[in-house]
Amino acid sequence: MEEEKIIFCKSGGCTAKLGAGVLEHILEKLPKGEKDPNLLVGYDSKDDASVYRLTDDLAMVQTLDFFPPVVEDPYTFGKIAAANALSDIYAMGGEVRTALNIVCFPEQMDLNVLGEIMRGGAEKVQEAGGSLSGGHSIADDSVKYGLSVTGTVHPDRIWQNNTGRMGDLLILTKPLGTGILCAAHRVGEENPGGFQKAVESMMTLNKYASETARKYHIHACTDVTGFSFLGHLHEMMESGVSCHIWADQIPVFQGAVEAAEEFLITAAGQRNRNHLEQHVTFKDIPFGMQEVLFDPQTSGGLLMAVDAVDAEKMQRKLLEQGIPAAIVGKITEPAGTEIYVTQSRKW
């Protein structure tokens, strides 16, 4: 019987994540143990990485992320997977120090493919200023790749995701739509220009946006990945505040809204919608744009709650550096629904 061909790219990136609702159900049942006062951020906070205090001036940031291929080219996939894993360190306000490879790979596949994946990942770790110090591999029936990353941050300068303040403006540093465009690409229906821009964005480190933002008053930060813009925004609102989002200010990759209108969407996006719809009120927002906001992002941008005094200055600085930052909303006092999405800021 002919051996089944391995498909390199079929449903990858952060669309492969388990749904947020499933994870919440499991995590809430895990034994917590005695609270370690040096564990400043743990999994119970739904944050991007854990943070453990080593001294009064130094804390360790730990994260890991891996997933199946989101593009066909192995070298590009390696870069995307590494940039995505490294991003959690930047979302906490930290610096990358070391990384370990995580590899699942079919034994019958050409090892040159694995070499190209790991080459792409290694280059991104180097760009981040970190050291690739080892890793672990297992034989599997499909390809998966990512990194376990350790970083450092001062304990008093950690960015958590749910510490935004009323009056803060929300800044997003990358456009949305990677999940939709990758889904459209797999069936040959993508916008070529938009898809290529999305690939370039997914390979881009959040290092530069994070470094610039540290010069301003950042009250909260997360990176937008598999739980979608609205999913990660929901986590930011868990301190008991609400927010208004202005749809016409949100950067979106060319062709993403149109692809969503043609129902070129992902199952992960629908899981996000089902999990979040009770927390979101849309005001005259078309279906395609709603889907972009629920779309699982791979290696998405930082979403930051910035002091209103600093927001426009910071946005200008990011734009000067070629980072497509946009002020997309504002944190408000609790107002019934957690997230209000309106067509424009004037509403």
Rank of each mutant, 00 (worst) to 15 (best):
E4D: 10
K5H: 13
C9T: 15
C14N: 06
L18C: 03
E24Q: 10
E24I: 05
I26R: 12
L27E: 11
L27I: 04
K32G: 05
K32R: 14
P37E: 15
N38K: 12
L40H: 13
D47G: 14
S50A: 14
V51H: 11
D56A: 12
L58Q: 09
A59N: 09
A59K: 15
M60E: 11
M60I: 12
V61W: 01
V70R: 09
V70G: 05
V71F: 02
P74W: 04
A85V: 00
L86N: 07
S87I: 06
M92T: 13
M92L: 14
M92F: 07
E95F: 15
E95M: 15
E95V: 14
A99I: 00
L100G: 09
V103D: 11
C104S: 14
D110E: 15
L114S: 08
E116P: 06
I117F: 03
I117T: 06
G121P: 00
A128N: 02
G135D: 11
I138H: 10
D140S: 14
V143Y: 12
K144H: 11
L147T: 05
T150Q: 14
V153W: 10
D156P: 07
T163F: 05
G167E: 05
I171R: 12
T173L: 03
T173Y: 07
G177A: 07
C182S: 09
H185D: 02
R186M: 05
R186V: 03
V187S: 14
E189F: 01
E189M: 03
N191G: 00
P192M: 01
P192Y: 01
P192G: 05
G194L: 01
G194T: 03
K197E: 01
A198N: 03
A198L: 01
T204R: 10
L205E: 13
K207Q: 00
Y208L: 13
Y208F: 14
R214N: 08
K215I: 08
Y216M: 12
H217Q: 15
T225A: 12
F227H: 11
F227R: 14
L230G: 11
L233T: 09
L233K: 10
H234N: 14
M236F: 00
G240N: 00
S242I: 02
W246K: 10
A247P: 06
A247L: 09
I250C: 08
G255E: 01
A256S: 04
V257F: 02
A259Q: 06
E261T: 02
E262I: 03
R273I: 05
N274G: 06
N274P: 01
E277P: 04
Q278K: 15
K283P: 04
Q290V: 06
Q297V: 00
Q297N: 03
T298M: 00
G301C: 03
L303F: 13
A308L: 02
D310R: 12
K313M: 15
R316E: 13
R316L: 05
R316P: 02
L318I: 02
L319P: 04
G322D: 07
V328D: 03
V328A: 07
G329D: 08
I331M: 08
A335V: 01
G336N: 04
T337I: 10
